[in-house]
Every structure is written in structure tokens, then in C-alpha cells.
Design a protein around this nucleic acid. Structure first.
Length: 227
RNA sequence: UCUAUUGAGGAC
DNA sequence: GTCCTCAATAGA
């Protein structure tokens, strides 16, 4: 048995246990479905079959759905997956945002989704035309997304929030942990450090199956492609 | 060199 | 979906 398969199986069995504990759903591992990096789980009671993909290099995993005609139940499992490897911190009273930026073909896009108690309050996306930002490629988009969220908090008289980001600089410049060498990153750091906001920082891995991170990613790309 | 991210190309 | 290479951005 390969090491990779052992790791796939380990994640699958943990998730299986999580489903039983939190949703009382019995999921069976389909032992014949083992492939290099994946295995399928059957939930007969709700007629859903998912495939779990494990990335040995990135040490991340995600799930995809097969032949499911029930979006509501699918969403339930998706949220369970989220809680499984991300904890339930989205459920506190904080306003949360997932931010992301992207750079395609010389265009910079940003996207963010704002939530409270797991419910989407607002989604934002757009392209950044200023050359001052565009020269920083995707980094410019990441910073704009974060600033859009902080501005939203001020506008809505929010005093504490949690920001989920995948690019290190969002926090490092925001808290001063990184020396800001560029004008843009300096401006960002000064702005964030003066905010009357109690900010909780949460680093998430890009493209790791995190529902909201991927939503923010799609928004940023949509903004560019929609132009 | 390492980290994070964004893309392009290719392999299965 | 997984793997590899190449280029860029921002840092340590």
C-alpha cells in the first residue's frame, strides 16, 4: 500500500467519523474506488456519493459530488466538509470575509464574500484599472479586496471582524510583520494599522477545497472575464 | 535559498 | 481531479 493511499484513507475515515458525529450520517468508503489520490464515499441514507481528493504535495484535500440530484443535501455535506477541516469558527458572531485577487492577461481583479453566521451578507467583485495597482499583478487585487472589506466594516459600524486570506502579505503588511518596500504596501500597512477595528486574521490555503475561498477566487476571475 | 500567491505550458 | 516545468508579484 502506498503512503499516499494511506493518507487518502486517513482523511476519508476522519471525515466519515465527523459525518457520523455531527450529522448522524453513515458514509461508507468504497474500497474499490481507490485511485492514486482519491476515494469515494457513499451516503446511502441520503443518496449522495462524493469523491475525496487528496493532494500529497500540498497536504490538502477536497471533495466533489457525483450523481447527486439534491442540491440541498449536497450543500449540507459541503458545509460539513467545511466544518470538518476548517473548524466552526465561522459560526461565532463575527463578520467574516474571504478575499482574493487574481491577475489574468494584464488585468487585475478582486473578489470578496462577506458572511455572518455562515450566511452571505454581500459579495463584491471588480477590476482594478489604476496602473499603480496593476504593476503589482495579483498582489494589487489581494490588497484591494482586503481594503474593500475593511471599508465595508466601517460603513456598517462593525468593530470586530475576521478576514480569511490566502496571500501572506494581507496580514504581514497589515500588522507590520513584513517590512513594506513598495509605496502600495506601505500605504496598505498604514491604513490597516490605523483602523478602529479588532481584526482576526485567518490564513487559508488557496485552491484547497475551501468553499468561500474558492467563491472569492471565482468572483475575482469573473470580474476580469466579464470585462 | 525558502514562503505565499497569480498565471502559462505540458503529462496522466 | 493528480503530477511536472516555466514566467511573474510580494516578502523572509
Amino acid at each position: 500500500m502506498t503512503k499516499c493511499r494511506q493518507e487518502v484513507e486517513h482523511v476519508a475515515r476522519e471525515f466519515q467519523r465527523y459525518l457520523a458525529n455531527t450529522l448522524d450520517i453513515q458514509a461508507e468508503l468504497d474500497l474499490h474506488s481507490f485511485r492514486d489520490y482519491s476515494v469515494s464515499l457513499d451516503m446511502e441514507s441520503i443518496n449522495i456519493r462524493v469523491t475525496l481528493w487528496y493532494s500529497p504535495k500540498r497536504k490538502t484535500s477536497k471533495i466533489t459530488f457525483i450523481q447527486s440530484q439534491d442540491p440541498a443535501k449536497e450543500e449540507k455535506i459541503r458545509m460539513a466538509w467545511y466544518g470538518f477541516h476548517h473548524g466552526d469558527h465561522l459560526e461565532n458572531g463575527d463578520v467574516h470575509a474571504f478575499v482574493d485577487g487574481s491577475y489574468i492577461d494584464g488585468k487585475v481583479g478582486y473578489g470578496l464574500v462577506i458572511l455572518r453566521k455562515g450566511v452571505v451578507l454581500e459579495e463584491m467583485k471588480g477590476v482594478v484599472d489604476s496602473p499603480d495597482y496593476r504593476q503589482h499583478h495579483q498582489v494589487g487585487g489581494e490588497l484591494v479586496a482586503a481594503v474593500k472589506f475593511f471599508q465595508w466594516c466601517l460603513k456598517n459600524k462593525i468593530s470586530r471582524c475576521t478576514i480569511h486570506y490566502d496571500y501572506e502579505g494581507i496580514q504581514k503588511w497589515g500588522t507590520g510583520a513584513w517590512k513594506a518596500n513598495k509605496e502600495l504596501t506601505q500605504k496598505y500597512g498604514e491604513y490597516v494599522q490605523k483602523l478602529p477595528l479588532d481584526i482576526t486574521w485567518d490564513k487559508v490555503k488557496s485552491h484547497s477545497g475551501n468553499l468561500w475561498n474558492e467563491r472569492a477566487d471565482r468572483l475575482a476571475k469573473e470580474a476580469i472575464k466579464g470585462e
